[in-house]
Design a protein around this nucleic acid. Structure first.
Lengths: 207, 207
DNA sequence: TCGATAGATGACCGTGAGGTCATTTTTTTG
DNA sequence: CAAAAAAATGACCTCACGGTCATCTATCGA
């Protein structure tokens, strides 16, 4: 096995390789069933090496989930708060963001992991709720409030239940993992249809 | 430990007890982590007894998932096909059915199990798709087609993506399992809001 | 060039769980 | 009531995996 120079970059690359391999395994066989030996092998390191970077299998999962979330939501938040576009346009942007997320296998796999194992790992559920769910919900609420204020939207139920906006992303994540071999799903089209429907309901018009 | 007479009823009761205990454990700690010893103890039998009724842990999971599905969907199908009510009424009925499902902890737990472990157990994913997903989708399609035919509905995207109708049930199942300790969700209200929104989009009216 | 130090390794340990089966208990039968 | 049959039991076997740590290796400072 080739050894690398001990630069910080090499260290980071190694951590990334371990996390990528772990996501692979966790996602494929589940957290419990995933074997550290396999993860180590896939990452090109020895099992002991994993313990130089992560305290335990559970911490590895946590670090992994945290690492995937990162910047994208923040970019959307900035874009939305800076924009002067009509609320319907912002909702479409949100939809495009979800569609993009649905295309990204890593993000989908992390989502599915959170939904599958989150109940058993409060730290992960908490983190995901704080960093993704609640931020996404706030964004949806802000957009709808804006549309209501401008008179563009005449209906505000989804402001009470922002989950209704995010639902198709969840459906896509679950479907692509569980039912895709049985029946294919065009996730971006699903999300687009959902946004379309939402806008019809919100504006009361067929545009 | 009390022994029971060997009537068929006793046998069935024992099978049910084992499956109930198994659902408990699988749902609480996941399939892999669930221990047969615990399931046996909770069911009031010895571990060996489980193997008199189920070939393996995996078969136990399959039997369990299959057993929960049962009749309720069929009742809804019959009710819908017999009804002469307007399509919007039928959609609300479907919503009520989902809301009821969201209240039933066992059904929710099975749903969550399927979504969590389904990818690893093709038999389960296949079964659930055939017995629940595709039947639910067909029902939604039929209702919307009826509404379109009668001129009641002026929009048909959800006919292409019946998943959009079912989405909030999935959201509810996942949310109640993963995020409920962090943020409560009123699942029936969520579903009602969703149906309301769907109807606005479908009819083009604010009723 | 040569210790010294930090990093990496993988054989090994302990534990715990799925599954088996000889034994025990209950029921049935003659 | 006794003996045979069926059902239930739980101690035990096997094996695999998370985690450890003595050993080895690469890098670096002098």
């Amino acid at each position: 096995m080739a050894r690398q120079a001990r630069t910080p970059e090499a260290r980071e690359a190694r951590v990334k390789a371990i996390m990528a391999a772990a996501l692979d395994q966790f996602s494929k066989v589940g957290f419990e069933a995933a074997r550290l030996d396999d993860i180590a092998q896939a990452a090109g390191v020895a099992k002991g090496t994993i313990y130089l970077y992560f305290e335990s299998k559970e911490r590895l999962l946590e670090a992994l989930v945290a690492s995937i979330i990162s910047a994208p939501l923040e970019a959307l938040e900035n874009s939305v708060s800076a924009s002067t576009a009509p609320a319907s346009e912002l909702l479409r942007e949100f939809g495009a963001f979800m569609a993009q997320g649905a295309q990204d296998a890593d993000r989908r796999r992390v989502m599915h992991l959170v939904f599958s194992e989150g109940a058993r790992f409060p730290a992960i559920a908490q983190f995901h709720h704080r960093e993704v769910i609640s931020r996404g919900a706030a964004l949806v609420r802000a957009i709808i409030a804006k549309g209501r204020a401008s008179g563009e939207f005449v209906y505000d139920e989804p402001e009470r239940f922002p989950q209704l906006m995010i639902a198709p992303a969840l459906v896509a994540a679950v479907w692509l993992h569980v039912f895709d071999p049985i029946e294919k799903l065009d996730a971006p089209a699903l999300i687009a249809a959902h946004v379309d429907m939402l806008l019809r309901a919100l504006t009361g018009r067929a545009d």
